[in-house]
Amino acid sequence: MGEFLLVTIQVDLYDRLALALENDLINMVSKTEARGVLIDISAVSIVDSFMGRILGNIASMSKIMDAETVVVGMQPAVAITLVELGLTLTGVYTALDVEKGMELLRNKIGYQPKEEEDLYDDFI
């Protein structure tokens, strides 16, 4: 059974970096045959329409490769702003934190945790 990928975005990204993240992550999903992708954006203070589109793209692309994507830890101010902007990130699952995100992924793909969790941690 596949593993989960965990990406923690630790700085605000500009467009080219965001595109690079999309590219790297999708390659990683393909290489590791991961069944789930967790994107932790708790340190991100702004998600605009471009970043929103990247998140949506990652979810759709992963889905084609049979992996589910969960965005975790969105700040309240970011959530309110996204709604006002008109972006609701359809197709992307969300969770309050990494732990709840993992639980959600397990439920979605019927995955039973083994003794040892194998997590890829990508920091940007």
Binding site: S45, I46, V47, D48, Q75, P76, A77, V78, I80, T81, E84, L85
Partner: peptide, 8 residues
Amino acid sequence: VGQTKLIT
């Protein structure tokens, strides 16, 4: 929230 809306 105001700050975030402005910079977005």
